[in-house]
Design a binder for these strands. Sequence first.
RNA 1: CGGGGCGUAGCGUAGCCUGGUAGCGCGCCUGCUUUGGGAGCAGGAUGUCGGGAGUUCAAAUCUCUCCGCCCCGACCA
Length: 569
Amino acid sequence: MRASQFFLATLKEAPAEAELVSHRLMLRAGLIKRLGSGLYSWMPLGLRVLRKVEAIVRDEMNKAGALELLMPAVQPKELWEETGRWAVFGPQMLKIRDRHEREFCFGPTHEEVITDIARKEIRSYKQLPLNFYQIQTKFRDEIRPRFGVMRAREFVMKDAYSFHTSLDSLQSTYEVMYQAYSNVFNRLGLKFRAVKADTGAIGGDGSHEFHVLADSGEDALAYCPDSDYAANVELAEAFVPEQNRAMATESITEIDTPKQTTCEDVAALLGVSIQCTVKAIALIADSRFYLLLLRGDHSLNEIKAAKLPGLADFHFASEEEIRNHLNCPPGFIGPVGVDADVQVIADKTVAVMSDFICGANKPKFHLRGVNFGRDLPEPVLVADIRNVVATDASPDGKGQLELCRGIEVGHIFQLRTKYAEAMNATYLDENGQTKIMEMGCYGIGVSRIVGAAIEQGNDARGIVFPASMAPFQVAIAAIGFDKSEAVREAALKLHNELQAAGIDVLLDDRGERPGVMFADLELIGIPHRIVVGERGLKENQVEYQARTESTAQTVSLNDIVSKLQRELC
RNA sequence: CGGGGCGUAGCGUAGCCUGGUAGCGCGCCUGCUUUGGGAGCAGGAUGUCGGGAGUUCAAAUCUCUCCGCCCCGACCA
């Protein structure tokens, strides 16, 4: 490809809309162009990247035995009513009406459509298992689109759905998909981790998320460096070794804390560790008032909390609700002396604490030397309701957890029969019995991967693409292309040779000044660069520089093609 | 939706408080010079100042209203 025939649209300054480095670089490099909130055009350069990601995903899915199909983006309301998700998905779904006032949505996912296909097409156990996938544009009306293509409303997703006669069969396809996903991210050249995950709105049993590791990631991950345990912090179990509560040694005392409204402040005032403090979080669910107790340095895991009996639809109590129930403003609330209708739930860590410090339910006072059983009743429930922290014991007992952040780029689920049952997707088994199909589903955020890869690969000069997804593998910067006959000849010859060798090459024949070419080629992240200039050609030489390096090496014109072939494999 | 902020040329911005000719840098076009790290000189084009209403002799500037966008929280590939 010759740059003069292509469309490079780089910017020196990033549009003000972009905050995240990958988003800024994608705009500056001219990969994408924003149309509206969460809506992006993929410009020719960006589309080349997207297509490379798609190709790898497609290849690995095919290798794993999945069959590609393509389903409509627009889906009728009736299908979604069968599973009850027309209401459940709610405002995240873009709903539209046709000229007959019939209701549709722009598909945010395709479980309903594929299950409809399955129930119409699959009759016999002999047809199973089957795994269908598509690479499709989806639309989810995100509450807050941000970070460019990383959380866009319209995005490209690979989604696969498998159908089985048994849980065993589902689990074996799940394993195959797990491996296929690992292959995809390895081939893409990304640092990633697979973690145990919450199944969220899609539902089902077993589930893993695949995360590209990046400090800017929206998810916190917990992993154990000494074992293969890894989980989303949403799910990671806070493992508390069996231990008995120590005997009370202090008597309960009120302490003056005029300005100390947080555990940090109270601990600092008393000169004790924050681990001696207990905080109370006030929730309301089903019009009952709850106090959840956590150690001062811990934070509430809302997903765990919502799984407790009666807490499915909790909300945090407002300041007014807190005053109504405890007669005390937030900042000083605690579990001591509360009315019987206040449900006190303790985190497992708190349940074994003694002589702790907590709010006094009295403005400007805290209590120290507090003990369960003596100063307040035992909690009505003890549960794991906190987020794990670094140095927590790994739940598999093999070391300590560490934390990192990740960008979710893939998610696999064992759906079991949730959709098949709701939509009556059945088959006849060996005995002629009607059975419900087991299902799995497997997603990859294709467009998100591009953003995630840039988040992981960038430097002061711009994008550093992994070789697998760079828009071009090699760039030729021809200095003085428009002026020098020698440069023109050599550059074109090299360009044609590389192309003939099957290498994706961009020849910068724009006749720009060297600095302009270098800056552009570095910004757009092309992994390998060759500089052809009159100076070198006199010695029959060109320069080669990898994007990851900061200096160039001189290479004989005769050797450059074979050198590149070596670099590329 | 709640909280904060922004909307002026393709991009980045000044001007707004204190109303009176819309300015700068980059980019773009023409010519000449230049050619190994975002060139120099000269000339040039491009703005319904987000939309509407109001106040005023006069509105980018003040008021109201609508729209769009960004950032912080709850959702997810």
